[in-house]
Design a protein around this nucleic acid. Structure first.
Lengths: 199, 199, 199, 199
DNA sequence: GATGAATGAGCTTTCATTCAT
DNA sequence: TATGAATGAAAGCTCATTCAT
């Protein structure tokens, strides 16, 4: 019985991963359900016995992985401990790591953000996510400012510009995760917080 | 005869603007040719007498406006004069101005970059564009580094991180161009080049 | 221009007639839009440029012809003149004539009445139709009763039993309209109103 | 062993009753096997271990109950005893009783009669049924005519018009069996046989 | 040149039926 | 025997493209 559920879970997971891959490569409309089925190694109809519709599959393909990366973006204080400057450095390390390995998810997120009208529910969810992150990092930045390590501009500006930056690098560089260029960007990310010369 | 051509030009331009608007809002596949015709105030078939196919219309909707913004990204030395630091400041001013007013075009570019396989020709074109920019700004950065105003990292890294950043802010903030937030980002863009505290 | 509209009208009419024929023979679900297109001599997509959906086509295939036969069932006083007994005789003549020539429409009506839940809007429309008829004939029956020609039961009972009867004969006898059996039923219809021996 | 069979019989009966209910409400094509299984409280695949196909289930759902009502329509002499007029009166009583309580079956029969091409085997079976009834009642009518109680028209006409009538009332009035209107129709049914004023 | 009706390939989705457990 | 996940044929519907007017 347990074995049965495992098998089902595996199949569901295969479909979902195929969906993430193809949706991220080709976008929602240009991805055919038949293609996802083929990629997942299941029959056509099987996709619909795990997900009620193509729309639902798309939503799930975004929201489920989003949950996994949430800890790295919200409630930062509980996840990252230490001095503000170290928290930010560790966070950047983790984010770059995340963004270089979960590129597909990030492509999907970008698609949604680029078409707010097409997926309003998803868009709202992602928007919440962004706002939660900005709120969470605000206090850390403020503390860092008091210690004199960070620029004295509005914490929100710094938070948002950081977010824009990591979004942008994922967009601009589609190389695979082993590309060392990803890691060079860490120092640039840090420089949005304060003047850091050493790399 | 001239009047005739003007009229034709106008119609073509209407169609193209409608295409830019709708493609950028809804993506390629979700935009219907019928919708573009309606938005442009022309009949359905007329679209096809100006553009041979939906694909061609999409390409044109991206490549023609791209030509207009090219001067701001390639052959920077001929467009921007002065000390490196001033060149970069002016460039950032112009870019932010551009990115806040031509958001639709930038959404389109982003769509193409997000789906390299779907529009390979367009993707190559945009990739060239990026590379030209990075090449062009490299020398300016090198000069600025000699003068001690910029960070001493690889000029390409700086160039690419700047590009990622402005791409990212457009993606993250969908507010209209009058939103003052756009302008706050200028100082953050500058900080990718060197340590600048004053805003 | 007029010729154009005529042609369009003709095509629409071809589709509608094909729909009436096939829907009445095979029911809603078993009738394929492709079959209607073939029967009408138009391409598949054309059906959808005249009717938005299969459902709408079905509704139209019933409601438009229903309008044509309405005069024979509502506002009977304005349509049939004379003594009650003659009015009823003429009405029966007309109804039998109608029911023998418009059998297809009647099959459709029956399908709807047999599935009240499936086509609630249509069902309501047909129900109205029936009630209008019963109301309209009530006064005629009352007058005939005063003259001693009709049974003295509730006029509604007589009206409804007449309606049931003509519905039933159409259901029971699927022979073509030239079959003389249809006309034999006239006398039986009349006998629901009063005792009439002569045929 | 017997208990086992009882259990099986019960399950089969549950499925069949669910089928009758849903087929009669929604028609053949719009009724899903999954829905029947749910209504019957059995699992999806179980339906197919009792009936080989949806078609077979439909046929059984009609033909088995048809056997139960057959005694009321064929070999009338063995079932109804007495004077023709009393036989007819009793028959009408029984038929109205039957038609008011077995409405679902009658809806099914009507569906088949309305689509002769879709279920040719069933249609033939029901056609036989009708012809048997008409044959059987013919002699009773002839006798009644000799006694001067019935109209002197063709016995077949009278038989068929009676059948049409009871078919029609079931079609026209979908109220539940407790509705007294059903019983008012008895006198109208009788009037198709001869002039009967008293109700 | 402009129009929009006609076309049909291609898509998503449904659901009867099969079959391994 | 009972189950329900897997299958894929078949259907409705969309929409880019064509072409007669």
């Amino acid at each position: 019985m347990q074995k049965m559920n495992d098998k089902k879970e595996l199949k569901r997971s295969n479909i979902l991963n195929a969906a993430i891959k193809l949706f991220s490569q080709n976008g929602f409309a240009e991805t055919k359900v038949a293609g996802i089925a083929k990629e997942a190694g299941v029959s056509f109809g099987t996709v619909f016995s795990y997900f009620n519709s193509k729309d639902e599959l798309y939503e799930t393909a975004i929201l489920e992985p989003l949950e996994e990366i949430k800890p790295y973006f919200v409630d930062l204080e509980t996840h990252f401990k230490g001095e503000p400057i170290d928290v930010v450095k560790t966070m950047i390390d983790d984010h770059v790591q995340l963004f270089s390995t979960r590129k597909e998810l990030l492509f999907l997120i970008q698609q949604v953000l680029a078409s707010p009208n097409r997926f309003p529910k998803l868009f709202a969810e992602l928007d919440d996510f962004v706002n939660s992150f900005v709120d969470s990092i605000d206090t850390i930045i403020e503390e860092g400012q008091k210690q004199g390590h960070f620029y004295n501009d509005s914490p929100s500006l710094i938070a948002e510009s950081y977010l824009s930056f990591i979004n942008g690098i994922r967009l601009t560089f589609i190389d695979d995760e082993t590309n060392p260029v990803w890691h060079s960007f860490k120092i640039q990310a840090l420089r949005l917080f304060g003047p850091f010369s050493e790399s």
